[in-house]
Design a protein around this nucleic acid. Structure first.
Lengths: 188, 188
DNA sequence: TAGGTTTCGTATCGATCATTATGGATGAGC
DNA sequence: GCTCATCCATAATGATCGATACGAAACCTA
């Protein structure tokens, strides 16, 4: 998982995987069928072990703004963990691929779209509760927040510290509607 | 350039380049020395032909906030041009590479860092002019804006329309200090 | 027009890719 | 203790990578 995270799907050779796992090629193929299946397993593992912060943040019983704050600050921490590759596997894994690996690129895109959808869902819930203005464009803000997190992933890969990422997250939060304007607009 | 933009440095094979350029391998090597030099030429060309909006925006004789607005909206347009690969070559070109292509990854990182530095310079100028609050953290905001643009690049690659990117840019602008708080703080 | 040179496309190079066939070692059965 | 079957690491496979050596065609000179 770390190798795919660091080098992406295509640039990670079986020789690297073999050395890292201490397995022979037949052992790898017996256990994981082929490289693509192994990568998908790594994606699942990453989803379960490395980005629990996202589900925790979006599912926490807190106001929407606080949930988003936890989401972005969690990303700042998760994208810059010591001893781990910087950024997010769902982006580093394969943003630009060869035509042969199109299926992998699509899979990663699906994960990214799922993140955006989860954020949109939380925002919609916030609007329903009265946490957010009724006029708020849920889809647009979900794209903004996803974009910010994606950008943090690249900044992390470029060596940004956890403090720098936290600072970025704090600034990004300022784009959200302020508390005073929430709780249902004044009309009617 | 379009091939590198679409598939990244490593995933773009010489066979693809050969077919796209209509040249034989020796012609390519006579003209460009090797694949790495060809890629660097493509980077230069991209810098000159595709992202003039950034220099225009940062260099325009307008208030800082307007300059940043033009920068982000220009990115929205540049990252979703019809007939061009989505996103920014400086990101798509190679975010996660094999160890052999580390030099390419570093080169791309240098370009990205230069963008961040250019934004930081413009923000510092804005602060000096009085466009921005004296207490504003230039480096932090530069990282934020760079991150937003990087995120837009990924959103574009995932199929975001120019309208969606413009909307994202508009939301991101809300994180900047509002006009009323500028022109030197009230103390003293 | 004949000769010599230069140019240029084809075919091939070694290296590496993901994947699998094969032979030797190991352990069970009698 | 000997035979046989099973397992597994080494070695090889076809494909493709970036890069180049060779042969043919073309052109300029005499």
């Amino acid at each position: 998982m770390h190798l795919f995270w660091e080098h992406g799907y295509e640039a990670t050779s079986l020789a690297m995987l073999r050395e890292a796992m201490g397995l022979t090629p037949p052992q790898i193929y017996n256990a994981f069928t082929d490289k693509e299946t192994l990568f998908r397993k790594a994606l699942e593992r990453y989803h379960q072990t490395e980005i629990g912060f996202a589900l925790d943040a979006l599912g926490a019983p807190v106001p929407t703004r606080e949930a988003i704050r936890r989401l972005l600050l969690g990303a700042a921490e998760a994208y810059s963990r010591p001893g781990k590759p910087g950024g997010c596997l769902f982006i580093s894994g394969g943003l630009a691929t060869s035509p042969q690996a199109q299926a992998i690129a699509d899979e990663l895109k699906t994960y990214r779209k799922a993140s955006e959808a989860a954020i949109a869902e939380r925002l919609a819930k916030g609007k329903a509760i009265g946490d957010l203005p009724e006029g708020l464009a849920v889809g647009g803000f979900a794209k903004y927040l996803t974009g910010v997190m994606n950008g943090m992933s690249i900044q992390a890969r470029d060596g940004a510290s956890v403090e720098a990422l936290r600072s970025l997250a704090q600034i990004a939060l300022a784009a959200l509607p302020v508390e005073g304007q929430n709780k249902a607009p004044s009309k009617e």
